[in-house]
């Protein structure tokens, strides 16, 4: 795969990946964009080794998963005030930005691996077997994470609405 092909695929996929990572990073735009950039750079570096079997997207999400875990290990758990710079003064824009705040708060309370599995299943629509390949886990472990994560998330969302 050469650079033009890579950029063509990435241009079509970057929005979905960034949206996915934004949910994964619980609304942290800066972190989500950093992970997205790192993921794409890593993918570009190893795209020579990639064998085209129509699984580019899941391969990309596998890299994103590993990058996210690396990021979690190295980054500190604080939020920069710079994150708020993208928020517009307009009330409408602010409302739109905080529209998913309860979801982000709930996702933030899930363990990172559980969060990733939940998002792959519900947001990306991957099947359990595909998720197993992406996160390199057994089917039983993924199913357990999914059911535990689902209950956990539902409880948190219900609790948050009250």
């Amino acid at each position: 795969m050469d650079r033009e092909q890579f950029v063509a695929i990435i241009s079509g996929e970057q929005k979905k990946l960034r949206r996915f990572l934004l949910a994964l990073c619980c609304g942290n735009y800066e972190q989500a964009d950093d992970i997205a950039q790192d993921t794409m750079v890593k993918a570009y570096l190893s795209c020579d080794k990639y064998q085209d079997r129509g699984l580019f997207k899941s391969w990309l999400y596998k890299i994103a998963y590993n990058t996210f875990l690396d990021y979690k290990k190295t980054s500190h758990n604080y939020h920069s005030l710079d994150e708020c710079t993208h928020i517009s003064d307009s009330t409408y824009e602010a409302d739109r930005t905080f529209r998913y705040q309860s979801l982000y708060d709930a996702l933030n309370l899930l363990p990172p691996k559980e969060r990733y599995v939940i998002l792959l299943f519900y947001m990306k629509g991957y099947q359990v077997k595909e998720i197993c390949k992406i996160v390199s886990c057994g089917e039983a472990a993924v199913k357990k994470q999914l059911s535990r994560g689902r209950e956990h998330l539902k409880h948190l969302l219900e609790y948050g609405e009250r």
């Binding site: 934004l22 949910a23 930005t97 998002l119 947001m123």
Partner: peptide, 9 residues
């Protein structure tokens, strides 16, 4: 999650 379409940078 189907309706999750936040604004991106």
């Amino acid at each position: 999650f189907d309706g999750f379409e936040p604004e991106l940078t």
